[in-house]
């Protein structure tokens, strides 16, 4: 097994929080002997989120082992890997969606800017307002298109008055590139849209809250190629204002939309790096095998 780690220890110096920086990565603390250490630079120059030694357990199952990774501000980072590799599990740790699963237990640090998101003082409601999420299958609420987008701002009490809400809804739909298609049918149910439109509606719904980070869990897996292309285009545009983490099954998609790519394998983060480098010159055998189609 290849366990070359070159930059992990030094890379920690760039971490934003003293807590995290001091977190030792000595092998003594790594209880799971099976853990494979990450190849590549896990830090980002301007980190938005920083994760250190994250472990996730479902009941007895150790689903994610010792994952440390920074997510840079205004970057698109793609998580790739075969099914069951832990990439979605890790994504769901980032806005604590795993809280809803009773048997799920998480250890380690995850920081959003200066805040440890698993700290008691952090309210999950506030966290999720800051870290939005788009799911694999489009899941518009059984409400009108307008109400779908207005949902987030409404529950958080972000707006005063109808005019402001209108403006926010239209702006969000505009940014999601959906406004032309739905302008005349704002009162129709969200489910009346096509799959691709529904997914963009869900993106509009997420950005209406104006989050700092948007998590996308295989957002295109249920869509046709044309709809997929539209979403990918949208992701690229959104990068200006948001940090985007995307889990994807498709290596081509990762290559198209992301700046950095992280490869997960059976609960381990195997390799992180610039997307170009991962796809042209993978340093880990498993990564290479995966992207060359040896398995997956």
């Amino acid at each position: 097994m290849n366990t070359t780690t070159i930059e992990t220890k030094t890379a920690l110096d760039g971490a934003v929080n003293p807590d995290v920086r001091e977190a030792p990565l000595s092998s003594a603390q790594i209880t799971d002997y099976d853990h494979r250490q990450t190849v590549g630079r896990i830090t980002a120059d301007n980190p938005k989120m920083a994760c250190r030694e994250v472990n996730v357990y479902y009941s007895e199952k150790h689903a994610l082992r010792q994952v440390s990774l920074d997510i840079g501000a205004n970057e698109v980072i793609a998580f790739i890997g075969p099914s069951g590799c832990g990439k979605s599990t890790f994504l769901r740790c980032l806005n604590r969606m795993n809280d809803t699963i009773v048997s799920c237990r998480i250890t380690g640090h995850i920081q959003l800017d200066q805040d440890n998101i698993y700290d008691k003082s952090i309210d999950v409601v506030q966290l999720r307002a800051r870290v939005g999420m788009v799911f694999q299958k489009p899941n518009p609420f059984p409400k009108s298109i307008y109400e779908n987008v207005a949902y987030g701002p409404r529950i958080h009490g972000m707006i005063n008055g109808k005019a402001e809400l209108d403006e926010l809804v239209y702006a969000s739909l505009e940014r999601a590139g959906l406004i032309k298609e739905v302008e005349k049918r704002m009162d129709e149910p969200g489910t009346s849209l096509s799959g691709g439109q529904q997914q963009r509606l869900c993106i509009a719904r997420a950005i209406a809250v104006n989050p700092e980070v948007i998590l996308m869990d295989e957002p295109c897996s249920a869509l046709d190629p044309i709809a997929t292309a539209k979403i990918e285009e949208l992701i690229d545009e959104l990068r200006e204002n948001y940090t985007i983490v995307i889990v994807t099954h498709s290596m081509q998609q990762a290559a198209r939309v992301s700046q950095r790519t992280a490869y997960f394998h059976l609960g381990d983060l195997i390799e992180v790096g610039e997307t170009d480098q991962i796809f042209t010159n993978p340093r880990h055998k498993l990564t290479e095998d995966y992207i060359t189609g040896r398995f997956g």
């Binding site: 309210d123 409601v125 506030q126 307002a129 800051r130 958080h156 009490g157 972000m158 809250v209 104006n210 989050p211 700092e212």
Partner: peptide, 10 residues
């Protein structure tokens, strides 16, 4: 503003 806004209603 987001943090403050959300916190205000919490």
């Amino acid at each position: 503003d987001i943090k403050a806004l959300v916190n205000a209603g919490l």
